[in-house]
């Protein structure tokens, strides 16, 4: 893998730190007029999501991390692992529950997700920004109430629970924003 000098540091660069894959969040050049130059760097550990701060002597290097984002179709889960496929090549990848993490409640078979591979292994899974899912459970709908005020919880086919307007009924298809977990609209079949 390539190495990157502090002069190449920028937001989004994928590097190895303490044997974990990380992404640079922020890079600040600090230098006393007559003294040693440093780069003060905020780095996100891509395994844990934690952001830490590290300081480097300007000119030092970090090893790059072999990180690739790949669009993959979600196939199924066997209960322990989640199976994905690259549509063009039919190449299959298996992600564990650490990798799917919070994404699992949005995963619907056939949907195309972004699977981030580290050294060829799924590191984490990002669901589509919007998913269409069926309501499997919610309190009975209030006919005529289209105000959207108030709201109630609804369970979707993947197990996710979102707040929906009172008029939503079991069996309806909903569009949901996975980034915020919020209901967007009903979807006509």
């Amino acid at each position: 893998m390539a190495t990157f000098s502090t002069n190449e540091f920028k937001s989004g660069l994928k590097v190895m730190l303490d044997n974990d894959p990380c992404a640079i969040v922020e890079n600040e050049f600090v230098k006393p007029g007559k003294g040693q130059a440093f780069n003060r760097v905020k780095i996100r550990n891509l395994k844990t999501g934690r952001v830490i701060e590290r300081t480097f002597k300007s000119g030092d290097t970090m090893e790059g991390a072999d990180i690739i984002d790949t669009a993959m179709q979600y196939l199924y889960t066997d209960g322990q692992f989640w199976h994905f496929m690259v549509p063009d090549t039919f190449e299959q990848h298996i992600a564990d529950s650490n990798a799917v993490a919070d994404a699992k409640k949005w995963l619907k078979e056939q949907d195309v997700c972004t699977v981030t591979l580290w050294n060829g292994q799924p590191l984490f899974v990002t669901p589509p920004n919007f998913v269409t899912l069926r309501v499997t459970d919610t309190d009975p709908g209030l006919r005529g109430d289209t105000s959207g005020g108030g709201g109630k919880p609804a369970t979707l086919e993947t197990g996710a629970v979102v707040r929906v307007p009172l008029f939503i009924e079991v069996g309806e298809l909903l569009k949901v924003d996975t980034r915020t977990g919020e209901y967007v609209s009903r979807v006509k079949e």
Binding site: V30, P32, G35, F38, E53, R54, T55, F56, K57, D60
Partner: peptide, 23 residues
Amino acid sequence: GVGEVPGLTLDERDAWLDLLLTH
């Protein structure tokens, strides 16, 4: 809480002072 600075050795006393000064 400044932590490790890779590549900063104990031969560079003034650089350690600069590190403490700036951080």
